[in-house]
Design a protein around this nucleic acid. Structure first.
Length: 968
DNA sequence: CAGTGAGCGAGCTTCCGCTTGACTT
C-alpha cells in the first residue's frame, strides 16, 4: 500500500488531522521552523568559521546569501523526518498558509531532499471537509512567498545584530535592538515622557441630587454657569496644568464651588430639554491572540504568558482551536455550533437573525487560521468541563466559550436619555445669584442580547449588566425638580495611563508590529533586557530604556518609526507578489543604492563617530530642568549628579516619580554611610561605607576624604569599631628603611603587600601589615618576585616545529590558549589538550592567532600610568576585520571591572571551608547563590541590596574565597 | 560612584518567527 507523509507545523494539529485522513497517511509535525540563521558562534559550521559575514549568517557580498543551519535542538527531529520521508511514496507539505508556513515547507523540502513527489497543501480550518478539500487541490511551493520570508528574516537579523552592538558600545553591554522590541520600548518611553512632563491641575464641579415631585431622585452634574461652560479635565493643557488657550470655559475654585453649592441647595430646577434615543450594541468579534491576551489580563488578571500557557494546554487537549491567530474568521462548523447552543441555552430570541461574519482584518494579518474558539462541531459547555480542566484552563475556556457564543447572539437594545436642567443659585446675601445649567444622563437596557453571555472587561456578565444601566426617571421638558443635595467635588487632571502588557500588545497590533506567536515573548524580551519592569499591571520603562530609545530616535530615527514595519510589510507583499526582488530590497536597506534606501551599514559607521555616549546616558527630566541635577545611567545603574555630588537613584523609582523635591532629598541623603565617630587626634569624622570595591572607611568629611582604607576580609562593616577603623586608616605603614629606600606596608587591590622603591612583594595575611618587621621584609625582598611555586603559568604542552618557534599551550584567565610568543589563540569548545596535535595547534594559531593587544593606543589614564613600559607594536593590527573590531574589544576590556585570578578555578567544595574570610553579608550572599543555587535577583532584595551591587559584592567575595583557597 | 603593584591571551552579548519538549525540585 502506498504511503503519504503529511507534514504540518504543530504536533497537536498532526494528531487531529491524522484522524481525518485515515489509512495510507502518516502525519508528522515539523515543530515550527527547522532551520534558521546561526544564532551565535557555536552554531556556525566549521567551514564558515572565521568568515567575516558568518556572524550575521548572511553573505552580504554574495547577494545576501543566507547560511541556514538546523538548530541543535531540532537535529534529532529532522533526522526522524528524514527517515519518514525515505519510507514514504509521496510527501505533502501542509504547513500554514502564510509567509512563515511557506518558508517552513521550503526548508523541509531543502533539508529532507525527498526522492519522491512533493506537494504543497493548505487549509485554514481543521475540519474534515476543509482537510479533504485541501488534499484534493494541492499546489506547488510559492517561491516568491519564500523569498519574502527570507527578506523579512534577513532584515530582522541585520537590524538586530548590527544595531545591538551600537548599544553595547554606547549604552551598556548585552542590550538589544530590534524591529519590534525597539518600537515597543519606544512606546513605553514616550508614554512615560508624557507622564514626566505632565502638570496636574485641580478643578471643581458640583454633583447634584435632583428630586422629582413624586420623590424619585437622580444624579445630575453642573455643566455651566451664567451661560459659560464649566472647565473639565480635558480643557487643561497637560504640559502646563493651565487652561488651553482656546478653551472658553470657567474654572471653579474650591471656595466658589462651596459657595455655589450652598446657594443651590434646596433651589428649584427646571428641565430645559429631555432627549431619548434608542441604541443598539453589537457583540465583539471572536478572539484572536491579541484580544485573548487583553481579556485574559482584564478579566482574569493573567499575564500574557500565563494566558498563552493555558491556551496551549487547551489546544493540545483538543478543547480549542489554534491559539496563535490573527483572523476573526469562524468556520461554518463553528457558526453552526454557536447558534445551536444560543438557541438551546438562551432561547431563539437571543439568536442573531443572520449568522454574523467577522472579516475585518488586523493590520498585516496573515489569516492562516481560524479565530480562537471551542473546538469541534458542537461546543462543550464550560460547566461540563469543570471536572476535567485545571483552574487557569477552565477559566480561559469559559471566556473563549462565552465570547464565541456571544458573537452569534442578537444585538443588545436599549435607550439613552439625556436631560438638561436650569436654575438659579442664591448669592451669599440670599439674593438671586448666577444662573446654572446641569445635565443628567441615563441608560436603560430593554433587551440584553449578547450582553447576557459576555460583557467585555468584566468577569461576571449578569452583574456587569446592572452596571451598564443608569436609570433615570422619565423627566419631561418644563418639569420642575428640587436640588435636594449639592456636593462640591474636587478633581485633578490625570496623566495618560501607563501601558499594561495587554494594552501594549493592543498598540503593537495596531501598529502592525509583532505577530501572534511573538507578542508574549516580546514582552518577555523587553523585561529581560531591563527596558521595563512590571509594577502591578503597569509596564514601567527603565532609565536604560530612556537612554536606548533616545539613541535610536536621534541617530536611527527611521528604524524606530512607528510605520517602519508597515512599510516593510508593503515591500514584502511586493516581493511575495513577484513585483519586487529580495536582493535589491536588502541592498537598499543595508548598503544603500545610489544614496537611496535605509543604508544601515554606512549609517552605523557614520553614527558610531557621532554618538556621544555621555550625552546619550544623560536623560532629560523636565521637572529637574534648571536645577543643575542630571540623571545618568552608568555602569552601576542610574544615578543623579550635580557638580561633584552623586547619588544613586533608588531601585524601583519610576521615572515619572522623580521630581525636584525628591531629587534634592535623595541627593542630601547620607547614602547608607555609618558614622563611627571622630578621630580625636585630627578631629575629623570617621565613616564606614560600602563602596564599589567593597567596604571601606574614610577619614574626613571632605570629598574626596583625607584618607580611605579598605576593610580586611575578616572585618565586618556592620560591627566595625572606631578603634579598628583608625587602625586601618593608619595604613600604609612605614616599616623602616632598607638599602636607602623606605619600605612601606600597604593594602592594595590584590591584597596586602610591601613596597620598596619600584619593587614589591605580596604578604600572606592582612594582619602582617601591622606586624611585619623590617628584617622579615628584607628577607622577602631577597626572594624572587612571585614566591616559591608561583611561577606564572607553566606550559601545559609544548609543540615543536622545524623552522618555526615552538607553540606552547598555557592555562590562562579565559581558559587554555596557544601561543608562540608572537600570537595567541584561545581554545574553543571541543578543542582540548587531549585532541591537540602539533599540526592542529599550528593550524589553529595560523587561523585565529591574534597579536596581543598593545597598550599604546589606549586612551587616557591607563596609558599614562603604564607609560612606555610596554613595547609598542611595530605595525597596526593587520586584517581589516581586526581593525574594525578592536575599538569594541578595547572598550570592553577596559571596562571589565574585575580581574579573575590566574589560577584554575576551585570547585565550590574547595572554596566553602574558607567562607570565614567573608563578611556576614557576603557569606549570606554567597551561600544563597552558590550553596542553595538561588538567583541573585531574588537574594539581593532579601539582603536589602541593589542587584547590581550584590553582583559586584559576589565577585569581590569570590575573589577573596579563591585567594583564601590558594592560601594567600 | 575611593584608591591601590604584578602576572596575562578573549569571546560573547544581540534579532523575529515558527513550534514543543527536556531537564530538575
Amino acid at each position: 500500500m502506498s504511503k503519504t507523509l503529511v507534514i504540518v507545523e504543530s504536533p497537536a494539529k498532526a494528531r487531529t488531522i491524522e484522524k481525518y485522513l485515515g489509512k495510507g497517511y502518516m502525519v508528522e509535525s515539523s515543530i515550527g521552523h527547522i532551520r534558521d540563521l546561526p544564532k551565535s558562534a557555536a552554531d556556525i559550521p566549521e567551514k564558515y568559521k572565521g568568515l567575516a559575514w558568518a556572524r550575521l549568517g548572511l553573505d552580504i557580498e554574495n547577494d545576501f546569501q543566507p547560511l541556514y543551519v538546523v538548530s541543535p535542538e531540532k537535529r534529532q527531529h529532522v533526522a526522524k523526518l528524514r527517515k519518514m520521508a525515505a519510507e514514504a511514496d509521496e510527501i505533502i507539505l501542509a504547513t500554514d498558509d502564510d509567509r512563515e508556513g511557506e518558508s517552513i515547507a521550503w526548508h523541509l523540502f531543502q533539508e529532507l531532499k525527498p526522492k519522491v513527489p512533493v506537494k504543497r497543501m493548505v487549509f485554514h480550518e481543521i475540519t474534515k471537509e476543509a482537510i479533504q478539500a485541501a488534499i484534493a487541490s494541492p499546489r506547488q511551493i510559492d517561491t516568491n512567498l519564500v523569498e519574502a520570508q527570507e527578506a523579512r528574516r534577513a532584515l530582522d537579523r541585520l537590524y538586530g545584530y548590527e544595531v545591538s552592538p551600537v548599544l553595547w558600545k554606547k549604552v551598556a553591554p548585552k542590550l538589544s535592538a530590534g524591529r519590534v522590541q525597539s518600537v515597543a520600548t519606544r512606546m513605553l518611553v514616550e508614554r512615560e515622557r508624557e507622564r514626566m512632563r505632565f502638570v496636574s491641575a485641580p478643578w471643581w464641579d458640583l454633583l447634584v441630587t435632583g428630586r422629582t415631585a413624586d420623590a424619585t431622585t437622580f444624579p445630575a452634574r453642573l455643566t455651566d454657569i451664567a451661560g459659560q461652560k464649566l472647565a473639565l479635565g480635558k480643557d487643561f493643557d497637560p504640559l502646563t496644568g493651565k487652561l488651553k488657550p482656546d478653551a472658553k470655559v470657567r474654572i471653579l475654585s474650591e471656595a466658589e464651588a462651596r459657595a455655589l453649592a450652598d446657594g443651590l441647595t434646596g433651589e428649584s430646577l427646571t428641565v430645559t430639554s429631555a432627549e431619548e434615543k434608542p441604541f443598539t450594541q453589537k457583540p465583539y468579534p471572536p478572539f484572536i491572540t491579541s484580544t485573548l491576551q487583553q481579556e485574559g489580563s482584564r478579566k482574569l488578571g493573567f499575564a500574557a504568558t500565563r494566558t498563552m500557557r493555558a491556551a496551549q494546554r487547551l489546544y493540545e487537549g483538543g478543547y480549542i482551536t489554534y491559539m496563535r491567530t490573527d483572523s476573526t474568521n469562524l468556520s461554518v462548523e463553528a457558526v453552526t455550533a454557536a447558534r445551536t447552543q444560543v438557541s438551546g441555552m438562551y432561547g431563539p430570541s437571543y439568536l442573531s437573525p443572520q449568522p454574523r461574519v467577522y472579516s475585518k482584518k488586523a493590520k498585516n494579518a496573515q489569516e492562516a487560521h481560524e479565530a480562537i474558539r471551542p473546538a469541534g462541531s458542537s461546543f462543550r459547555t464550560p460547566d461540563s468541563l469543570k471536572a476535567e480542566l485545571g483552574g487557569d484552563e477552565w477559566r480561559l475556556y469559559d471566556l473563549i466559550w462565552k465570547r464565541t457564543v456571544a458573537c452569534q447572539m442578537a444585538d443588545a437594545r436599549g435607550r439613552s436619555l439625556r436631560v438638561r436642567l436650569g436654575g438659579k443659585a442664591l448669592d451669599s446675601s440670599g439674593g438671586a445669584g448666577e444662573e446654572v445649567g446641569l445635565s443628567a444622563s441615563g441608560r436603560t437596557i430593554d433587551f440584553p442580547g449578547f450582553l447576557r453571555a459576555y460583557v467585555e472587561g468584566s468577569d461576571d456578565p449578569s452583574a456587569a449588566l446592572g452596571d451598564r444601566e443608569t436609570p433615570l426617571p422619565p423627566l419631561k421638558q418644563g418639569e420642575r425638580v428640587t436640588a435636594e443635595t449639592v456636593k462640591p467635588e474636587g478633581h485633578e487632571t490625570q496623566p495618560p495611563a501607563r501601558y499594561t502588557e495587554a494594552s501594549l500588545v493592543q498598540s503593537m497590533e495596531g501598529a502592525g508590529i509583532g505577530r501572534p506567536s511573538t507578542y508574549a515573548s516580546i514582552l518577555g524580551t523587553i523585561q529581560d533586557r531591563g527596558y521595563a519592569t512590571k509594577k502591578g499591571q503597569a509596564l514601567v520603562p527603565s532609565w536604560t530604556a530612556f537612554a536606548t530609545s533616545a539613541l535610536l530616535e536621534h541617530h536611527f530615527g527611521n528604524l524606530v518609526d512607528y510605520d517602519f514595519t508597515a512599510k516593510m510589510e508593503e515591500d514584502l507583499d511586493d516581493i511575495a507578489g513577484g513585483r519586487a526582488k529580495r536582493v535589491p530590497y536588502l541592498q537598499r536597506f543595508y548598503l544603500g543604492v545610489n544614496g537611496e534606501g535605509m543604508a544601515l551599514r554606512p549609517l552605523i559607521d557614520r553614527q558610531m563617530g557621532e554618538i556621544d555616549a555621555r550625552s546619550i546616558a544623560t536623560i532629560g527630566v523636565p521637572k529637574l530642568e534648571g536645577s543643575g541635577i542630571e540623571v545618568r545611567v552608568g555602569r552601576y545603574g542610574p544615578y543623579m549628579q550635580r557638580g561633584e555630588d552623586k547619588a544613586n537613584l533608588p531601585e524601583g523609582l519610576a521615572p515619572d516619580e522623580l521630581n525636584l523635591e525628591l531629587a534634592e532629598e535623595i541627593m542630601s541623603r547620607p547614602s547608607g554611610d555609618r558614622p563611627l565617630g571622630v578621630d580625636e587626634a585630627s578631629g575629623h569624622p570617621v565613616v564606614a561605607r560600602a563602596g564599589r570595591y567593597g567596604p571601606y572607611v574614610t577619614l574626613g568629611a571632605e570629598n574626596p576624604p583625607i584618607r580611605t582604607a579598605s576593610l580586611f576580609p575578616t572585618d565586618d562593616l556592620d560591627t566595625l569599631s572606631l578603634e579598628r577603623a583608625l587602625k586601618l586608616l593608619s595604613l600604609p605603614r612605614l616599616v623602616g628603611t632598607s638599602e636607602g629606600e623606605e619600605v612601606w606596608a600597604l593594602n592594595g587591590k590584590y591584597g596586602p603587600y610591601l613596597k620598596r622603591a619600584n619593587d614589591s612583594r605580596s604578604l600572606t595575611t592582612h594582619e602582617e601589615l601591622f606586624t611585619v618587621t623590617l628584617a622579615e621584609a628584607e628577607a622577602l625582598f631577597l626572594q624572587p618576585r612571585f614566591g616559591k611555586g608561583r611561577t606564572p603559568t607553566p606550559p601545559l604542552s609544548t609543540y615543536k616545529y622545524e623552522g618555526r618557534a615552538d607553540i606552547i599551550l598555557k592555562s590562562g584567565r579565559f581558559g587554555p590558549y596557544l601561543t608562540d610568543g608572537e600570537r595567541n589563540a584561545t581554545l574553543r569548545k571541543g578543542e582540548s589538550e587531549d585532541n591537540l596535535t602539533a599540526e592542529r595547534a599550528l593550524k589553529i594559531l595560523e587561523e585565529r592567532g591574534k597579536e596581543p593587544k598593545a597598550k599604546v593606543g589606549k586612551p587616557k589614564k591607563a596609558a599614562a600610568k603604564t607609560g612606555a613600559a610596554k613595547k609598542a607594536p611595530a605595525k597596526k593590527a593587520p586584517a581589516r576585520k581586526a581593525a574594525a573590531k578592536s575599538p569594541a574589544i578595547k572598550t570592553a576590556a577596559k571596562k571589565a571591572p574585575v580581574k579573575a585570578p590566574a589560577k584554575p578555578a576551585f570547585t565550590w567544595a574547595q572554596l566553602k571551608p574558607h567562607l570565614g574570610v567573608l563578611s556576614a553579608q557576603e557569606q549570606q550572599l554567597v551561600t544563597a547563590t552558590r550553596d542553595q543555587g538561588r538567583k541573585m535577583d531574588d537574594v539581593a532584595p532579601e539582603l536589602g541590596l541593589d542587584v547590581k551591587k550584590a553582583k559586584g559584592m559576589a565577585l569581590q567575595a569570590s575573589k577573596k574565597l579563591n585567594q583564601a583557597a590558594r592560601g594567600e
